[in-house]
Lab assay of single mutants.
Amino acid sequence: MTYKAILNGKTLKGETTTEAVDAATAEKVFKQYANDNGVDGEWTYDDATKTFTVTE
């Protein structure tokens, strides 16, 4: 399944996708990606669109 992350960081804005077996696995991948890029904020998840959003 393909999951998407939308990054609304102070220094990084954009989107990325990952293939994962479930939302929990995708969330770990996206949170690591955000952390590696200095983005730390509030996370939300929309199951209907399989989209995570982080906003700083």
Results as ranks from 00 to 15, higher is better:
N35I: 15
N37S: 08
K4T: 13
K28G: 09
K13L: 07
T17K: 08
F30L: 06
K10F: 12
A26M: 00
L12K: 10
T2F: 09
M1A: 13
Q32V: 08
G14V: 14
T2C: 13
A24D: 10
K13M: 08
V29H: 12
D46Q: 04
V39K: 00
D46E: 07
I6L: 06
N8P: 04
A23F: 12
T25V: 07
W43C: 04
A34Y: 06
A20M: 02
D22N: 09
V39C: 05
K31F: 06
A34R: 00
G38Q: 07
D36R: 08
E27C: 14
A34E: 00
A48Q: 11
N8V: 13
K13Y: 12
N8K: 11
L7S: 02
G38V: 03
T51S: 05
A48C: 11
Y3E: 03
F30I: 02
T25F: 07
A24V: 10
K10P: 10
D36K: 10
A26T: 01
T18F: 13
V29R: 08
K13D: 04
N37V: 14
N35S: 14
E56K: 02
G41P: 01
V29S: 05
Q32R: 10
A23Q: 11
Q32P: 00
D40Y: 15
Y33N: 02
T18A: 08
G9P: 03
L12H: 14
D40T: 13
T18M: 09
T2N: 06
K10E: 08
E56I: 08
T17G: 03
N37P: 01
A20L: 02
Y3N: 03
V39S: 01
K10Q: 12
D22Q: 02
D46H: 06
N8F: 10
T18C: 15
G14R: 12
D22M: 03
E19F: 15
N8H: 09
D47M: 09
A5P: 04
Y33A: 03
T49S: 11
T17W: 14
N37R: 14
Y33L: 08
K4C: 08
F30V: 02
T55E: 06
I6F: 07
V54D: 01
K31E: 04
A26N: 01
K28R: 12
T49G: 04
Q32I: 09
A26R: 00
D46S: 05
A24W: 09
G14W: 15
V21K: 13
K10R: 11
V29D: 05
K28M: 12
E56R: 01
G41E: 00
W43S: 01
G38D: 07
Y3P: 02
V39H: 04
T53P: 01
Q32D: 07
G38S: 06
N35L: 15
L12M: 14
Y3S: 02
E42H: 11
K10T: 12
E15S: 11
K10H: 13
T18Q: 05
T17Q: 11
K31V: 07
A24F: 10
T17C: 12
K10M: 12
